[in-house]
């Protein structure tokens, strides 16, 4: 496929980003109008999946934009991390249960999630050869 260049490329990227924003907004509207228990961005994922299924393909610039956003997802998590400071007093008061719960449950979820996935995948005989793709 020929790569669009210059102004066409820039406007394409803007449109692609607008599609992501529109799906997010549509997700938020659907969630609140239909009183869904699921938050907007998650409904937005399903909306975009529906759009892609209807198109039958992923436009090149949409794919590029999506990969850029996912590649920098970490940047958008930083403000919530800074937010810890606003609750320093509350966290200090209950620091032991909080720290223990964070570490304990994250480790347990990593262990249970990976072992269960691997065990069921092996039993159903469709497991991937060890280490492929990593």
């Amino acid at each position: 496929m020929e790569k669009p260049s210059g102004l066409r490329r820039v406007s394409g990227l803007v449109v692609a980003f607008a599609v992501l924003v529109a799906c997010n907004m549509a997700g938020g509207l659907l969630s609140s109008f239909l009183h869904l228990p699921v938050p907007g961005p998650v409904v937005g994922i399903l909306v975009l999946l529906g759009v892609l299924a209807a198109l039958g393909k992923v436009p090149l610039l949409l794919r590029e934009t999506a990969e850029f956003m996912i590649g920098h997802l970490n940047l958008f998590y930083i403000p919530a991390g800074v937010g810890v400071m606003a609750y320093a007093a509350l966290v200090r008061q209950d620091w032991l249960p909080i720290v223990a719960a964070l570490f304990g449950s994250t480790f347990l979820a990593l262990i249970v999630g990976s072992l269960v996935f691997q065990w069921v995948a092996r039993r159903t005989g469709r497991h991937m050869p060890d280490g492929e793709g990593s």
């Binding site: 992501l20 997010n24 998650v42 937005g44 958008f76």
Partner: peptide, 22 residues
């Protein structure tokens, strides 16, 4: 400043539909 960046988390989350579809 934080709320500007946090706003992008919405479209950033929606973008996960693309690798899922592919």
């Amino acid at each position: 400043a934080g709320s500007v960046l946090l706003w992008f988390l919405g479209p950033g989350t929606v973008a996960l539909a693309v690798p899922l579809y592919l």
